[in-house]
Simulated assay, not measured.
Amino acid sequence: MVPDRHAGYVRGEPQFPRAPGHRRTGHVEERRAELLAHRSCRDIDKAPLRGEYLGTLARARVRNDVGHIVTLVQEAVDALLKAAGSSSFMETNTLARIFQDVGVAGSHDHATPGIANDVYGKLLLGADGPLPVHV
C-alpha cells in the first residue's frame, strides 16, 4: 500500500492527489494478470491428467497469455511506483527491486508479448509458412 504522506519540504495538503487512481489501476492490472495465469496453469496441469500433450494452439495461447501477464504486471508495478512518488525509485526501496525483477523477467524470450501474439494469431488464422519461434 502506498502511504499518504507529505513531502518533507512542502507544507499543506498531501502530495498524492492521484495516488488512489494509480493504486486502483495497479490492482486491476494485477487481478487481470492473475486470471490469465490461473487459466494458463489450469490448461498446463489438466493436459497430462487426461494423458495428453498440450497441443500447438494451446501452447501458443499459454505463451501469449504469459506475454500479456508480463505486460500487465509491468503496468501494475509502474502505477504503484508513480503513486508512491520519486522516493520509490531508491535502490533500498522494495518496490524498486520488484520493478527491476519484473523488467528482467519480461526480457526473456518466452515472455515477449509481441512474438507470442504474432505466433498465436498466425495459428488461430491457419496461416501457412514458418513460425518465428518453436511453440
Rank of each mutant, 00 (worst) to 15 (best):
R50P: 03
S88R: 00
T94K: 06
A84C: 04
H27Y: 04
V70I: 13
E52R: 08
L131E: 02
H68R: 12
G129T: 05
A37E: 12
V133I: 15
D128W: 06
L72F: 11
L54K: 08
D109T: 08
A83P: 02
A105M: 10
Y120E: 09
A116D: 01
P17S: 02
A116Q: 04
R50A: 11
K46Y: 07
V133R: 13
R42C: 08
E29H: 15
A105W: 11
R18F: 07
Y53I: 14
A33W: 08
V62Q: 07
T112Y: 13
R63L: 08
R23M: 05
R11M: 08
E29D: 15
T92W: 01
K122D: 09
V2L: 01
P17A: 04
E29I: 00
A60Q: 05
V102D: 02
V102Y: 00
E52S: 08
E34Q: 14
I115M: 11
K122S: 07
A83V: 01
E75I: 03
L72Q: 14
K46Q: 14
P113R: 06
R97T: 05
K46L: 14
P17Q: 00
V102A: 01
H27N: 09
V28Y: 09
A58C: 10
P20S: 07
G67I: 08
Y120F: 11
V133G: 03
P48V: 03
G26P: 04
V119L: 01
D78W: 06
P17R: 00
V104W: 00
H6S: 10
D101P: 00
A58H: 07
Y53C: 07
L80Y: 04
T25K: 04
L49A: 12
G8K: 10
V73N: 04
A127D: 15
P113S: 06
V70M: 07
P17H: 00
T25R: 10
V66T: 11
A96C: 10
H108N: 08
L57P: 05
E13T: 13
